[in-house]
Design a protein around this nucleic acid. Sequence first.
DNA 1: ACTTATTGTAACTATTATTGTTACAATCGG
DNA 2: CCGATTGTAACAATAATAGTTACAATAAGT
Lengths: 152, 152
Amino acid sequence: MQVSSRFSIGVHILSLLGAYPDAENTSEYMAGSIGANPVVVRNVTGMLRRAGLVATQQGVAGTRLVKPLEEITLRDVYGAVRAVEDGNLFGFHPNPHPNCLVGGNIEATLEREFTAAQAAMENRLAQTTLQEVVRKLREAASGRPPGDSTHC
Amino acid sequence: MQVSSRFSIGVHILSLLGAYPDAENTSEYMAGSIGANPVVVRNVTGMLRRAGLVATQQGVAGTRLVKPLEEITLRDVYGAVRAVEDGNLFGFHPNPHPNCLVGGNIEATLEREFTAAQAAMENRLAQTTLQEVVRKLREAASGRPPGDSTHC
DNA sequence: ACTTATTGTAACTATTATTGTTACAATCGG
DNA sequence: CCGATTGTAACAATAATAGTTACAATAAGT
């Protein structure tokens, strides 16, 4: 099992919007940078829009940021794209025997542990803003052959 | 997406072994407590065996612990049952455009963030031993109607 | 030996989530 | 009014999970 790549696609979209705020950034265009289908990009963009991170308008080309990148963390994107179903990272076997020391109490006991582990992961994501991501992208690009920095 | 319930099943199995070390604990029996098919139990038990946590013998009824529960953490079980494919919790969109500030650098940049977040989660799991889990199961059972503590 | 029970494993099915794709209505700009 | 774009539904392909049946391998008890 893996967290859906909608998460990385969402980060990619927001990074494009932040790095190239004056570009048109249509779904077709961003799909070329992401390497995915434009419909997938529109779907993820819709999730970011419903989370209040970007704005779009039907019939008008492009997506634009609503909040500055320093106010958006990886945790926000993760939540926006529903990277994890129902917010529960850990699955649970559904029919433990209730009349049993183990079966009757394991769900409540493990749920606390699972919640704590998931929170640790999400708190780490909350420590990185999209602004830092774009800064690191620029740092990485500076150590590479020229031409990489073109809006593509 | 969700971590496979093999994880919670693995914890359930080890908890039964720890709570009832003198019982026979056949796959059929444990399947009754877990509420799953005996073959699923044997498959998860096989993963725990290959991780060096339990021992079984073909033809001989029962599974037994190899290590004491205080030396087994939730992280060990999580790793044993391959709760996460290839060790990579976060999926990534596979074809970003390489000739692009964002597309050419996002994978390496995000990988560090994803690795850190995943490590935070796994480190939290490593803080809880199976002995603690069994202790909490007993605590939870003590606040319940009698009969719950029977080996079932 | 022979019978019986259990483990280990393969094979198949059903279900679900993800991703890509086509199609089309709704909307806006020129 | 035309053309382009977004929003969304519908469908297919793929993959992972979980349940189930089946059976070989192995060991214990008689």
